[in-house]
Deep mutational scan, measured.
Amino acid sequence: NQASVVANQLIPINTALTLAMMRSEVVTPVGIPAEDIPRLVSMQVNRAVPLGTTLMPDMVKGYA
């Protein structure tokens, strides 16, 4: 099963992502692949992401 990127904390809108904000977890539906975590660092979210939410490509500016 593919691990996805999950929010490790509440991430406010327009926040630049850091490693501490993300974790890898096997979830359904599948979100951004966990191997993309290094690429996500310093990218901004375009909405508030609650703790435990799977990051989807449309939630991260410049990812999709």
Rank of each mutant, 00 (worst) to 15 (best):
A64D: 14
G62P: 08
G31T: 01
V41H: 07
P38K: 11
S24V: 09
M59C: 05
A3K: 05
P57Y: 10
S42L: 11
E25V: 04
E25C: 04
Q2P: 15
V27C: 04
N14P: 00
A3P: 11
G52K: 05
I13L: 15
M43L: 12
T54G: 03
N1A: 15
M59W: 10
A7Y: 00
D58K: 04
Q9Y: 07
G52V: 01
S24Y: 07
A34S: 11
S4E: 01
N1P: 15
V60P: 01
V30F: 12
P50S: 13
I37H: 03
M22H: 00
I13T: 14
A34G: 07
G52A: 11
G62C: 10
P33T: 10
V6Q: 05
N1S: 15
A34R: 03
V6K: 04
N1V: 15
I13D: 13
D58E: 12
Y63T: 04
V45N: 03
R47M: 14
I11Y: 01
I32V: 14
Y63W: 12
I11D: 01
D58R: 05
M22W: 02
M43F: 10
Q9G: 04
V27I: 10
N8H: 10
A7I: 06
K61E: 11
T28D: 15
V49N: 01
G31A: 04
P57W: 06
T53G: 13
M22R: 00
I13K: 08
A34N: 05
V26Q: 08
I13F: 13
N8F: 09
P50Y: 10
P50V: 10
Q2S: 08
L55F: 10
P57C: 15
R23G: 10
V5F: 01
L19Q: 11
R23C: 07
L40H: 00
V41Q: 15
M22V: 12
L10Q: 11
S4K: 02
G62E: 14
P50T: 06
D58P: 07
Q44K: 08
A48S: 15
I32F: 03
R23L: 12
L17D: 02
L10A: 09
L55C: 01
G62Q: 11
N14H: 12
P29A: 05
L17C: 02
V30D: 14
G31C: 03
D58T: 14
V60D: 02
I13Q: 05
I32K: 00
A7M: 04
V30S: 09
V26R: 02
A20Q: 13
A20K: 06
A48F: 05
T28F: 05
Q9F: 10
A64Q: 12
A3N: 09
N1W: 07
G31Y: 02
Q9P: 00
R47C: 06
S42T: 14
M56V: 14
R23Y: 07
N46E: 08
S24A: 12
M56E: 06
V49R: 03
V45L: 08
P38M: 11
M22S: 01
L10R: 05
T15Q: 15
